[in-house]
Design a protein around this nucleic acid. Structure first.
Length: 279
DNA sequence: CTGGTAACCTGGCCGC
DNA sequence: TGCGGCCAGGTTACCA
């Protein structure tokens, strides 16, 4: 779930349920989820304070506290936020529980424990330290910037799109959607991509992410031609109706359509099959 | 530096 | 119903 559009939805959720409310209770359910500081520091940093604003960068969500520290949330593969009103409604796998003065609660839930939370003085410093590229939807991240960040890369396009150091926010799921909409095989070597394919990937990246953000990452509301409405083994390609293919690419499972995403070049890009993309 | 792979962590789900 | 094995929307340490 937690790629850029999902985190954007979490941000809205956080804004709605946590902003401008005083924290009256903090419970660390699993201290291993905390990085950058100790559980005590986190508790002390949150208790009695209030969140004043939020910002997002790629898959990271930051909430600024009065007093200038930032609460960082990364959701890993299974993280999300959940608000509730009665203590006995606390979700399973809650790792951090925040109680507010108005009686409501917000849980940071994360079954697999791959994400993390913590308090930091400066999001920009963290972004730099993690080596993140520009946030994929940043308007300043234009086609020229996209091309220059891809230049010199020898890997396959899907793992490159998922590389947070090139652009931040795209993961396994959205890279599948972007490449389907662009009509590019996920295994295509970056060096063999033609200008028009780069353009298609870039445009599709912006459009898919913006669409998903506007629909709050709720896949059931996605356009009919989106793969993410039904991304699973045995599902059909939303463009041509053929059966979707799967492959292990960059260590993860990719879903794609061998018909709509014609393979046009290997890693070295010596061969280019000029298949007219069906439009 | 770049790319590929395994490991991390904790289950959920499928098939026998 | 029970159990082993595989898989999972991310990141990162480690190796070539």
């Amino acid at each position: 779930m937690p790629e850029l559009p999902d985190v954007a939805a979490f941000r809205k959720y956080f804004d709605k349920h946590a902003l401008k409310k005083q924290v009256s209770l903090v419970r660390v359910r699993n201290p291993k989820i905390i990085r950058e500081n100790s559980p005590e520091e986190l508790e002390e940093g949150l208790a009695g304070h209030e969140f004043v604003s939020t910002t997002q960068y790629g898959k990271y969500l930051f909430a600024r506290l009065d007093g200038s520290k930032w609460f960082v949330m990364h959701f890993g593969m299974t993280g999300y936020l959940e608000r509730f009103e009665k203590e006995n409604e606390e979700p399973a796998y809650t790792r951090l529980l925040i109680g507010f003065k108005d009686g409501s609660f917000l849980a940071y839930v994360n079954r697999r424990m791959l994400g993390w939370i913590g308090l930091i003085p400066d999001p920009d410093e963290l972004i730099k330290r993690k080596g993140l590229g520009p946030s994929a939807l940043d308007p300043g991240f234009d086609f020229e910037a996209f091309k220059s960040r891809l230049s010199g890369r020898k890997g396959e396009i899907k793992p490159v799109l998922m590389n947070q150091g090139i652009a931040a926010g795209i993961g396994n799921v959205y890279s599948d959607e972007i490449l389907l909409q662009a009509g590019v095989d996920p295994r295509t070597g970056v060096m063999s991509l033609r200008e028009e394919q780069l353009r298609a990937i870039f445009d599709s990246m912006k459009e898919v992410l913006a669409t998903a953000v506007s629909l709050e990452a709720e896949t059931v509301r996605f356009p009919d031609n989106y793969l993410l409405r039904d991304r699973r083994k045995g599902a059909k390609c939303p463009l041509c109706g053929g059966k979707l293919d799967t492959a292990r690419i960059g260590g993860r499972t990719a879903f794609f359509c061998g018909h709509c995403q014609a393979f046009s070049g290997g890693r070295t890009g010596t061969r280019i099959r000029n298949k007219k993309s069906a439009q």
